[in-house]
Design a protein around this nucleic acid. Structure first.
Length: 724
RNA sequence: GGGCGGUUAGCUCAGCUGGUCAGAGCGCCUGCCUUACAAGCAGGAGGUCACUGGUUCGAUCCCAGUACCGCCCACCA
């Protein structure tokens, strides 16, 4: 127990671990599954990667969620903050594969079962870090019911959803153009692709006309794909080529005859106005090919090497080798008219960073438009509200143009597809089919497929569990705008489809915290910081040193200061990290600590008379307190956490300490008997007001207040009168 | 190529669809260490509110355009 008399500065390192233990032992964060979703309050954490560590985005996001959870709990609502982690297919598998590589082996050498076993062990070893960090932050989540997206019950829910959507015809298997990620050796979805600007060489290649008179020149940045060309397209109105439409050209190096076709997609002003068509290796070409009934020879395989459909001398080459070989041959045949450099954006894998290889592949897809319609309506009707509201427009624009989702992944870590094959037969079901000779599809589902079920699968769905009845639908979702499509939209769609209701009613999109120089926070750029280093003290990277007294170490600001600082700086959509704000938060904790000392050391322990303000300043501070309570409550409910934090600061600093406590000091020294009850009342209500934002210190102070029993976190304050 | 946000004090940011709205914190300057907190207290200096037009009795705020900065979406070889 810290000593108020001698501790003149708030010491988070002394207080926080002790308070955290108290909370966990109390069971307060694990509410009984009683009551109805209307009277209860619940929210589901965006599940962090199971092997991840806390970063600044998590710290802000969870400070906000905890602020809401504690606020609602103190309003008397049974509050459940659903906690858990995500198996994060590609990310986790990649980590383990890297470890295997360091041991000089790889997953194929290990085999599927042992590899998956190895990932589970990895999770066992590193999986608890982020949960411990959440406790460190003071997050009042339900640690007693921690979920994982690969739990048995959760997996059952995933398979049921897959089967149901398959029965409805939404999920199907098709040979279609996909984003092939050579890094992970898997198809990935459109949303996992990021465009990057690159400078390529644009090759102008002469394709001799079959008639023998002249050639038609095409421009391409991927000459190696010409081995799979099946046509040349020109714009139907292009005078230069009109007479050639329907003619044939000869594909160099291969000898195949290519029909010259007309298609409005072709832009006459780009390159030569003539476009080589490679249906198997370019999405546009794929669609043009479908329109014109072209064949789809595939010369690049999933292994990134040239296939047997190309002339023999190229087979087995990598894409890069093939490009060099093709260009060299074209040059020696005098068919390379010229080259030019071209800067354009091309897709890269968000995960592996490798350039996407578009190719036709047999994958599982999910049609989204039927599911999207009600999910659009949920937002336009206001049953789901975005905060700030302008995100609703982005959501709607994307949903209205939604495309099929490639949901199969050629990985081992994840939910394996509930699909079995035997010859030409396919069985889709939650259990294996009877009979001999069936083999299960080796692929797993996109991680986001299982994440989409998060708000209800964590509560036991498809079983009608007490948890589900008590806490679903949830109230709010707090997340970043980068996963509005990947996650938020899909949760709304799945929630509506499988539970008949929106999984939450409010979506708060948090600010994105940038480094002080405006770049994004990232470990690899050296612009990231570990929130735990702010809480407990730790290295301060150079970018953060500009005005904070040079590099070196962060002081141990404590969790409350970090939380308050993050909330206070999180107003706009992008915000630069400000150590000053965290320091301001620490000032506030210190101020509050000393105000508590002044009051608690100055009044008699048994001064518990009813509050009866005797002097004008007493009535004034009670009025200002009520006003502050109203403002803070209103700001929290409006998802305006920075103003909630600042309003708290203004009250504690500007009104309680600078004015009221200074004014009553003489009365305190004189032992004015009418003063003590007012002081204790104001202190109690002030720590209660501050608790959702600064839980540790306020809980500690509360434990010293005479007559205060139980936990502050469990103390119920009636709603302030908004008219006050 | 579309869309969204931003530009206010040296720094990081507030400013309710127009009238004591020109603010806060930090930093800086000047005073205060017997008296809860020097990680404190009191006071002070600092801004053509990006630019150009428009609406209005009146614009940081509303409208149009320009310039930068950031982000999202998009199949131009």
């Amino acid at each position: 127990m810290s000593d108020l008399e001698t501790t003149t500065r708030y010491d988070p390192a002394d207080v926080e671990p002790r308070i955290a233990r108290k909370w966990l032992e109390s069971g307060l964060f694990h509410p009984p599954a009683e009551g109805t979703p209307d009277e209860n309050y619940s929210l589901a954490i965006p599940p962090p990667n199971v092997t991840g560590v806390l970063h600044m985005g998590h710290a802000l996001n969870n400070s906000i969620q905890d602020c809401m959870a504690r606020y609602q709990r103190m309003r008397g609502r049974r509050t459940k903050w659903i906690l858990g982690t995500d198996h994060a297919g590609i990310a986790t598998q990649t980590q383990v594969e890297r470890a295997l590589a360091a041991e000089g082996t790889d997953r194929t050498e290990l085999g599927r079962e042992p590899f998956v076993q190895r990932v589970w062990e990895w999770r066992q070893q590193y999986g608890g870090t982020i949960i411990e960090q959440l406790k460190r932050l003071g997050a009042s989540a339900d640690y007693a019911e921690e979920r994982f997206t690969l739990d048995d019950a959760y997996a059952e829910a995933v398979l049921r959803v897959f089967v149901a959507l398959h029965e409805k015809g939404y999920i199907y298997r098709d040979r279609y153009m996909v984003n092939w990620d050579p890094g992970s050796g898997s198809a990935i979805s459109d949303l996992e692709v990021e465009p990057r600007e690159v400078t390529d060489t644009l090759y102008y290649i002469d394709y001799p006309l079959a008639s023998g008179s002249g050639a038609i020149t095409v421009a391409t940045v991927r000459p190696e794909t010409m081995l799979a060309d099946t046509a040349i397209a020109v714009h139907p109105e292009d005078e230069r080529y009109r007479r050639l439409i329907g003619e044939k050209a000869v594909l160099p190096l291969v000898g195949r005859r290519l029909k010259i076709i007309a298609d409005e997609y072709v832009k006459p002003e780009f390159g030569t106005g003539a476009l080589k068509i490679t249906p198997a290796h370019d999405l546009n070409d794929f669609e043009i090919g479908r329109r014109h009934g072209l064949a789809q020879p595939q010369v690049i395989g999933e292994d990134g090497r040239i296939t047997a459909q190309a002339p023999e001398r190229f087979v087995g080459l990598t894409v890069d080798e093939a490009q060099r070989a093709v260009v060299a041959e074209l040059e020696s045949e005098g068919l390379l008219a010229r080259t030019q450099s071209l800067t354009h954006t091309v897709p890269f894998s968000h995960r592996s960073g490798r350039r996407i290889e578009p190719l036709i592949s047999l994958q599982w897809f999910m049609r989204m438009d039927e599911l999207a319609a009600p999910a659009i309506d949920a937002v336009t009707s206001g049953r789901v509200r975005f905060h700030p509201p302008n995100h609703a427009k982005v959501y709607r624009d994307w949903m209205e143009n939604i495309r099929p989702w490639c949901i199969s992944r050629q990985l081992w870590w994840g939910h394996r597809l509930p699909v079995w094959y035997r010859g030409a037969e396919t069985h889709v079901g939650t259990t294996a089919p009877r009979g001999e000779g069936w083999t299960r599809d080796p692929d797993v589902l996109d991680t986001w497929f299982s994440s989409a079920l998060w708000p209800f699968a964590t509560l036991g769905w498809p079983l009608q569990t007490p948890q589900l009845r008590a806490f679903y639908p949830t109230d709010a979702l707090v997340t970043g705008r980068d996963i509005i499509f990947l996650w938020v939209a899909r949760m709304i769609m799945m929630g509506l489809e499988f539970t008949g209701t929106e999984p939450f009613s409010d979506v708060h999109i948090t600010a994105i915290i940038q480094a002080p120089d405006g770049r994004r926070m990232s470990k690899s750029l050296g612009t990231g910081i570990d929130p735990v280093d702010l809480i407990e003290g730790g290295p301060r990277p150079p970018v953060f040193a500009a005005r904070a007294g040079g590099p070196g170490e962060f002081p141990a600001y404590g969790a409350d200061a970090v939380r308050w600082g993050l909330l206070a700086m999180s107003s706009g959509q992008d915000v630069r990290f400000s150590e000053d704000k965290v320091a301001q938060g620490r000032q506030l904790t210190n101020k509050l600590w000393n105000a508590a000392r002044l009051i608690l050391l100055g009044v008699d322990d048994d001064a518990r008379a009813a509050v009866a303000p005797t002097e004008p300043e007493d009535r004034w501070i009670l009025h200002r307190l009520a006003r502050a309570q109203g403002i803070v409550a209103q700001r929290i409910e409006a998802f305006d956490f920075s103003h909630a934090a600042l309003a708290l600061y203004d009250f504690v600093y500007g009104e309680l300490c600078d004015w009221y406590l200074e004014l009553v000091k003489p009365r305190l020294r004189a032992g004015d008997p009418g003063l003590a009850p007012t002081l204790l009342h104001v202190l109690t209500e002030t720590v209660a007001l501050a608790h959702p934002l600064m839980p540790f210190e306020t809980e500690e102070i509360y434990s010293h207040i005479p007559g205060a029993d139980g936990l502050l976190a469990a103390r119920v304050t009636p709603a302030a009168d908004p008219a006050e």
